[in-house]
Amino acid sequence: MTGAGLRVRDLDSFYGPAQILFEVGFDVAPGEVVALLGRNGAGKSTTLRSLMGLMARREGEISFRDTRIETLPTYEIARLGLGYVPEDRRIFTELTVEENLTVGQQRPREGVTTWTPERLYALFPNLAEMRRRPGGQMSGGEQQMLTIARTLMGNPSLILLDEPSEGLAPKIIEQMADAIVTMKREGLSIVISEQNLHFARLICDRAYILEKGRIRFQGSMAELEADEAVRNQYLAV
């Protein structure tokens, strides 16, 4: 399965001499929403960072839209249409909402939705009310929306969301889920790393479970739903 999707094989990743990921492999088909589940420290964030070329040392095979990206620098990976929303949001706190969006802006991409600030303000109405506000003066939920909007400005065909529901109020989480469903409807492929199974259940098609840097389970959301043993072994806290 290649084409417009993402294909990961035998991905090993290191932090200094410590190996974090072991032979991780998964696929994301065009338009698919895939959950990467696992407990704290299982390697979810490291997997996403590895895809973006943000780990100092990673080995294995990563193909995105028929291009091998495991040796490319981060900015070239982003320019191929792989969007990344980090776990800690990393809003440019000195920059206004508008300016944050400007940084994310890339050329329109063929066969992919083109986002404009106006479309994003429609998707996240809260942001529309604070275009001139510095990112540092926004609430956590607003920052989370801005970081997703900022990445969408690059018109990605696949977006990596690292724990988008973390630390947010239930009401904001619902808004977030709505926005992600809209993105899916626009044809985006999405990889979501999550600890919150309930949130993943709302929006994902398939799931992979990571434990201690290895893939331990893969299947549809329905299969995971039916398999209480797996959930207890790898997800229950």
């Binding site: 943000l54 981060t74 900015y75 982003a78 990344y84 440019f92 300016e99 890339q106």
Partner: peptide
């Protein structure tokens, strides 16, 4: 200018700017 905004963004967080597709 967009260039100036990118410079200010990079002053704060270079990795994130790269992850948004800017050649540092």
């Amino acid at each position: 200018t967009r260039w100036g905004v990118l410079v200010r963004a990079a002053t704060q967080d270079r990795d994130m700017v790269a992850a948004l597709g800017v050649n540092q």
